[in-house]
Simulated assay, not measured.
Amino acid sequence: MVTATRSAERTTEAAAEPRRQGERWRGTATVVLLRVAVIVLAGVLWQVLSGPVLPEYAVSKPTDVVDALWTYLQSAQGWTDIKTTSIEILAGFGIGVALGTAAGLLLGSFRLAGQVLEPLIAAINGIPKIALAPLFLLFFGIGIWSKIAIAVTGVAFVVFYNIYLGLRLRQRELVEIVQVMGGRRHHVLGYVTVPTLAAPFFAALKTGGPLAILGVIGAEFIASAEGVGHELFVAASNLDAPNEFAGLIVLVVMTLILNGILTRLDAYALKKLGLAGRRRARKG
């Protein structure tokens, strides 16, 4: 009787799964359609209000922006700018993550080192990153390395603090339980430290991505020979609103791509660590 009941429950669950998947797909499709509708509505209002209400020289028109974007993407210089900025962002982001992770693990693992150096790091972090751009230009020149250095400073501090505080807030009781059961350092790392740091680490990655883009574009504004930020600076200097908005659209797309990659990486890593269900439970 019990076996038959369990079999019936499994059959019911199997039959309900396609319906749940269909509901999820419909919900996702609804959200996407609403987003597209908002973008279309904003574009229509922009087109209608530009001129009669808003100064066209300052905000341009969507039709002119699309034309400028198409021209930019068809040019060799446009793709050179995108390639240069992408390299600077990815290199700065990667180096910043590596340095921030190493510093966070080091100072979080050795309490005395953390007590000595953490206030100094906080003081350095208080300096606006863009204020360091002239200094990096003196050290690295006008090329890509000065932009990479600015991106590194923005990302490294965010990753450092998330890792450092994550280690400080690690549950000592769990560490002691693993050690009492005969666990060694690698057991503590695998069963306590990594699951504890996973969420703050990926949160730092998603926060650091836009900071890397902000640092690179700000540095390209100050001094550069190519890059999307350079294109934006030239367009602003010439009061060229269509090309200014075209460059901003390119930046938005780059940000969405980076954020999408980090979101998928976050979901994949948490699934491998067995933490995805815990996150869904918290959301619920």
Rank of each mutant, 00 (worst) to 15 (best):
I82L: 14
T80Q: 14
I89H: 02
A58T: 13
D64V: 00
Q77S: 15
F93C: 06
V65G: 06
P52H: 09
A68R: 10
Q74C: 05
D67W: 03
A98N: 02
G100D: 03
I82C: 07
L73A: 05
L69W: 06
V66D: 07
L90T: 13
Y57I: 13
L73T: 01
K61P: 11
T71N: 13
Y57N: 15
A68M: 06
T63C: 05
I82D: 05
V53A: 12
F93G: 08
L90Y: 06
G92C: 03
F93R: 05
T84C: 01
T101S: 14
S86G: 10
L54C: 03
Q77G: 15
V59Q: 07
I82H: 06
D81E: 04
T85A: 07
K61R: 15
A76C: 01
V65T: 13
I87C: 04
Y72E: 14
S86P: 09
T63P: 07
I87Y: 09
S60W: 02
A102P: 05
G78I: 03
G100I: 02
L99Q: 02
S60M: 07
V97A: 05
P62I: 09
L99Y: 01
G78R: 06
G92D: 09
G94W: 00
S75C: 07
T101N: 09
G92K: 04
F93T: 06
Q74I: 01
W70A: 15
S60H: 03
T84V: 06
A102R: 00
T85W: 01
Q77I: 06
V53L: 12
K83R: 14
A98W: 00
V97C: 04
T80Y: 00
I95L: 11
A102C: 08
L54T: 10
G78W: 03
L69C: 08
T80S: 15
T71K: 13
L69T: 04
S60I: 01
A58V: 13
S60F: 01
I95V: 13
F93P: 04
G78D: 11
V97P: 07
I87W: 08
E56H: 06
Y57V: 14
A58S: 14
I87P: 03
T101R: 06
Q77P: 04
K61N: 15
T80F: 03
Y72W: 09
G94C: 11
F93D: 02
P52E: 11
K83I: 05
S60P: 02
